[in-house]
Amino acid sequence: MSSEIEKVLGPRVPPDEFKAHRARYMIPTLLFVAAAILLVISIPRPWWRLKLVAPQYPAGLSVTAYINQMTGDIAEIDGLNHYIGMRPLGEAAEFERTISVFGIIAVSMLILAAAFVHNRWAALLALPALFLPLIFVLDLQFWLANFGMNLDPTAALSSSVDPFIPPVLWTGNIAQFSTVPRLLSGFWLAMWSSGLIAVGLFFHRRAYKPLVDKQSHARE
């Protein structure tokens, strides 16, 4: 039975070996746990903000993205956007926002699970968390492009404002507005999480690779 488990989850660490090199086996586990904690902490924190600055809005208007909601001057921005025929912001990434909390918890669980998997499958389990910030940015850019490129051609200002793609990471310009984006703590937590996972995977491999090699030798 135990050999069946070891086939799937990789070799277990013999107690003597663990006692002898406690740090070697604890480091990846602790890193993964820390990464999972950071991800969970990021859930209620803002990830990204877009600030819109125009002459008549010297203090700017802003929309702040959390993984499951958007806050800020949404009504005012939607009000302005209707002149150029952009859909209401509430229609963006509805699916993503619905699943995101469970999704991040699930991704965190996978990292924790990775700590118990001692073969190469651990990397696969950690992969979603590792690429989460990238996925976030790409998805956001997808929606910005989707909204900016699908303007209602019958909108009042359609002869003045052509379809456009607001950049996620740097400043853009649309009509009299500049769009100034900023990545916020939720995103940076996820980045730290990714970093810890990457380092964790390195230590994970260093700790368990010899055991995995030994296991396969034994099979042969």
Binding site: I27, L38, G60, W188
Partner: peptide, 25 residues
């Protein structure tokens, strides 16, 4: 053990960074 401490320090640094990183404009 030394490594463990440094990792923990790293994690603490991350959390500290989080606390210092204001989302306010």
């Amino acid at each position: 053990m030394k490594r463990l401490i440094s990792i923990l320090l790293l994690a603490a640094l991350a959390l500290g960074l989080l606390a210092a990183c204001s989302d306010e404009e």
